[in-house]
């Protein structure tokens, strides 16, 4: 005796099919300029990686005083704020060429896993900011002992 007829055609099936096709079409149209994948245009650009212990965020931020950087972790949201100041020169300067930008920035990044906000460490060396966020205990894989 069959409780469920798996082969039964759903009368709405053809409509969901059209819906899916339309969805694909919209996705295709909206993703047209996405040649470089899911790269955001937020400053600073980051590289996010993980290992067993940490979630590691790297960002290239040359020419910033460590004191002008503000790194915060609230729940699983990492926020990097800061300001890049124009070069402080004692005397008046005449610019001949200017390619380096300055100004303020702020960016928040959602962590891929639960992190322990109390043990986050950040270092700034040679213009690269590296933030190490230890994974929270509960998100670490637990070995199940088989008796």
């Amino acid at each position: 005796m069959h409780f469920v007829n798996w082969n039964k055609a759903d009368p709405l099936d053809s409509i969901t099919h059209i819906q899916r096709e339309m969805g694909d079409l919209f996705d295709f149209l909206s993703s047209a300029p996405q040649a470089e994948g899911y790269v955001s245009e937020e400053f600073p650009q980051v590289i996010l990686s993980t290992n067993k212990e940490f979630v590691i965020v790297r960002a290239e931020l040359p020419g910033i005083n460590a004191g002008d950087l503000d790194v915060q972790v609230v729940n699983d949201l990492l926020t990097i704020k800061g300001e890049r100041k124009p070069t402080a020169e004692a005397s008046a300067v005449t610019y001949l060429r200017r390619e380096r930008d300055h100004g303020t920035f702020a960016r928040s990044i959602m962590m891929p896993e639960k992190v322990d906000p109390d043990r986050v460490t950040a270092s700034y060396k040679d213009g690269v900011l590296i933030i190490k966020l230890p994974k929270a205990q509960e998100s670490k894989p637990k070995q199940v002992v088989i008796k």
């Binding site: 290239e60 040359p62 070069t87 020169e89 610019y95 001949l96 060429r97 200017r98 390619e99 380096r100």
Partner: peptide, 22 residues
């Protein structure tokens, strides 16, 4: 690397952004 060049009374200064270079 992006560069700024400016002139101060006694010299010219070039600033270059080279993050990650020891």
């Amino acid at each position: 690397p992006p560069a700024d060049i400016y002139e101060i009374p006694d010299s010219f200064v070039i600033l270059l952004d080279m993050p990650g270079v020891p």
